[in-house]
Design a binder for these strands. Structure first.
Ligand code: SF4
Ligand code: SF4
Lengths: 128, 128
DNA sequence: CAATTAGAGACTTTACATATCTATAATAGC
DNA sequence: GCTATTATAGATATGTAAAGTCTCTAATTG
């Protein structure tokens, strides 16, 4: 059980875009080089962020990616969910025993984790 | 990013053993049948718990597994660590930037999760 | 000794993350 | 309109780890 590299790439990209105060699009070429990953693969990851409305993409020459308007609200959890999906960390083997104690513990722990990640915004890291 | 099925099997086995107040060994055959998993595979998982001192094994006829003496102290985190390993959920791609903000957020969130899981003991689920 | 049980190791299968390749679509600048 | 540049999409390949099987060995019971 680990966060995927794709999540790592997405977080680093978001942080970089946030640090760039400018609105000029940043090409995937540059973003990929910084992180030592292939541009086509990173592009595929960033497309997920585009579809979730976290960043915008601009085709054509001098194109690239920019943060969306509401970027200051984007949390770590948002980014993780965009890449890893939103399904629970804990897969129950049987069907929905509602008073199952194991499930209760695991889901409540996961919720604690999500709350923490929901409160941490990319924008908080930039302001200082 | 998900908890493995092996973790699920380990948790269910521990809970079952805890509910069995008796000290009689329970064979892997029976444990596996309940969880619809092959005995040899489950055996491999339970051996990890034996090595961490959470359960004891008894070979030979009428053998099986019993909880260890200190079983009331065993937390969810202990079991998860025994199966999934203890390495961090977040793999940092570069080497140890100590003031890295991303790493700081991810590790602190993970610590919150671990604290919650450390406070939940198998024995708490049985007492009621 | 015979039956039963856990443990160990090699191996296979499956699933998924990671990545590559190629073709298409959109845009800028000339 | 033409060309270069850039993102997007889909098919495909590779790598890795989880999940599971098979077989042999060791310990214990009776
Ligand atoms: S006991 Fe709980 S965790 Fe296990 S299968 Fe049933 S509902 Fe799921
Ligand atoms: S920026 Fe932080 S998370 Fe990223 S590689 Fe460096 S230390 Fe690791």
């Amino acid at each position: 059980m680990k966060y995927s590299k794709a999540t790592n790439y997405a977080l680093h990209t978001m942080l970089f875009l946030a640090k760039e105060a400018t609105n000029k699009p940043v090409g995937v070429q540059q973003l990929a080089e910084m992180q030592d990953v292939s541009p086509t693969y990173l592009s595929k990851i960033l497309t997920k962020l585009v579809k979730e409305g976290m960043i915008n993409s601009v085709s054509g020459a001098n194109g690239g990616y920019t943060l969306s308007r509401n970027w200051e609200d984007i949390s770590f959890l948002d980014i993780i969910h965009a890449i890893e999906g939103k399904s629970s960390l804990f897969d129950c083997c049987l069907y929905n025993d509602p008073k199952c104690v194991i499930k209760e513990v695991m889901l409540s722990a996961e919720e604690t984790l999500e709350n923490e990640l929901r409160n941490r915004k990319i924008s908080d890291l930039v302001k200082k």
